[in-house]
Write a protein that binds this DNA or RNA. Structure first.
Lengths: 217, 217, 217, 217
DNA sequence: GATGAATGAGATTTCATTCAT
DNA sequence: AATGAATGAAATCTCATTCAT
């Protein structure tokens, strides 16, 4: 299971910002929670300062403006974690010669669902920015468009050869697998009834696998 | 196809706000587009006024503050359209005695996807609010939790009896069907590569149906 | 005497900014005096607002930032007045066929000294900016380098032909004539003992003329 | 030539501030150049620290606030150098029994022009302060009003007796001699086309002398 | 002495909202 | 109803200065 690794990676990323004082760390944490609660625009510098227990000026000591602070909050998610995790995923999970579709789907869904669950606050912030910021969208297109080509596509192709997966375009398949993940995220955002994550995974895997498995006739 | 009805309903709702001058209508339209483009907080009254081609003061003539304007933008979507459309959906679409799973899924997916596509701007605004406003979430719980119980659940139950659908909990099934819809909406938000909506519908329907169809063995 | 014209031109320029409310005019006046007294950087928006008798926000209603306000204060001096006055000067003063050197010098010195005297505040501000702003300098080079070529130089050439003026390079002569004017301005800046302006003019003209008159031997 | 002496005096003055570390000297130099480039107000402590290659705190180790730093920059110019140089000037230059007007003027103009040229940065700063500080002006009045009375006036009187100089009031003559010097300084401020300083001196001397020489008739 | 993170007062600027015309 | 100048509260950000290390 790669999940523990993810947490580790995240923590590691935070520690990499090691030029940060304890107070600056507090500012980062305060900003993270406030951005998630109220959104970026609705959060004022003085609010952040108050929650972090520092003076307003201190917010601007290390992070030279609010946007930079936002980026500092999102970076561990987008940059490092995203790609590193993805790389890890290739190495440790996807790169095995999957014989069964289910093994593949289960690994992927579990990994990503835990990732979403563990980073829900950051994801909320990112989504919020995506809605207003017209710059972030294109940046993420890569992650969602290009990454699968080198990671998931080869595996899908292999499964296709073995007739273990339905013959739909690769991107359509990927998009379909993402469905339950995105819905899961949606539920988190809407604070909708929590279902034990194992159950959530099991149901999702069951339905996705069924959906992707070719009918014999 | 219910889509045209939706538009009609929306327009009708706008016309119901009939105490509105033409200028006020322009203000509403300007606010709608700006909120969708930049988010609520990042949109200023004077921007709205400029795009509407009126004076700033006029923005406050009918809508007494910015928040009221936001509500006026969202109301036709949430209140009227949502419920009315839902009712319509029951009457016209779901309430038939579906014999085939595919008929049911296709009707539902097509309808909702067009609904999302036609109201993308409003949905973007609403999502934006959902992320910051901690009040809207619970309200929508009803729509997503309770409504299906009286609309989709009976149909699913009927399909289950005929062994035309997999024997998963009803809410899990509903959630699964929503997957591609939510993903579709996500793509709109991220402004990701447009695929002809018919194709999008066909692929989604194919996969969902396959996923929900019981295996013979 | 062109002096009255200058004042007229200046006032006219101010009136051309006619989109200005009375309050905005007050802001302009307040800014002018405060910039002259304390310098641009040392003057705060709230100081301007207070002296103008308006709210802080009103300072930014018409002039969108402090620099724009500075420009609004300096523009009538640099742009319009400078060039217009210069044009007028050509037409009305320099363009006569001066036979005597003294006539020429007296006209020029009197005109410029009154110009300086009448616009001392604006000149102080401009000089202050010149010292810090690295953009204004080059702009003024034109005025000081190019303008004389089309205005004063032809007259000097004519005087040279008639042996009425010493045979020094034209720009050296112009620079020399400017000496007493610049000194006069320096005295105003330093708030040094005022001498009746007529006397100031007479002495300056006497010495300049003597300096420029060729010795017979 | 007294110029070298001036530099020496200046350096000597700096050395007199001998409680200064090398770092503190760097701070002084950094402040000098930055104040000259951008003006006092527009220069921040951290900028000074950066250019001096020290920490912000070090700026305040010796100079207890920014104004004190400004004074430390200006003092060697105003206090020591100014008066000392003036004294030197009396001793070494003016106190000779000048027979020719030109000798006198040439000595004075050359000396002052080099002085200005060598201390242009300090002069820029001083002028900048003069424009905003309403206290420095009066202080300088002495230098410009009283000093000549004991230095230049006696020499002028002697020249008048010998009919070697025009019979204008002494202060008018002094002011006239200063004209080209002030203009020269103005050109430095405006960064206007540089002319070789020897030429600048020669032309100025020629014109001033001609201007001050009585006509035979 | 030197450092630089922390401070908080204050500056600039924005903007929802009011109100006289 | 419509206008847009005026308002002032609040937000972002800067910076001189302090102080613990």
């Amino acid at each position: 299971m790669t999940e523990s690794k993810l947490r580790e990676l995240y923590e590691q990323n935070l520690r990499q910002m090691d030029n940060l004082t304890e107070k600056q760390q507090n500012i980062l944490k305060a900003a993270l929670s406030l951005f998630a609660e109220q959104g970026f625009d609705a959060t004022s510098s003085s609010q952040i300062a108050k929650r972090a227990g520092v003076a307003v000026g201190s917010v601007y000591q290390h992070f030279h403006n609010k946007r930079e602070l936002l980026m500092a909050v999102l970076t561990p998610l987008t940059k490092s974690v995203f790609s590193q995790a993805a790389d890890q995923f290739i190495d440790k999970t996807l790169d095995k010669d999957y014989n069964s579709l289910e093994q593949f789907i289960r690994a992927l869904v579990a990994d990503r669902m835990l990732f979403i669950s563990n980073n829900r606050e950051e994801f909320k912030i990112m989504l919020g920015q995506l809605l207003s910021d017209n710059q972030l969208g294109p940046e993420l297109n890569h992650a969602f468009n290009e990454q699968p080509k080198t990671t998931a596509f080869p595996i899908i192709d292999r499964l296709k050869k073995k007739k273990l997966i339905i013959d739909y375009p690769n991107d359509v398949i990927v998009q379909f697998v993402f469905g339950p993940l995105v819905t899961f995220f949606g539920k988190i955002i809407l604070a909708i009834k929590p279902m034990p994550i194992d159950q959530e995974i099991n149901y999702a895997v069951g339905l996705i696998v069924n959906g992707l498995t070719p009918r014999s006739n």
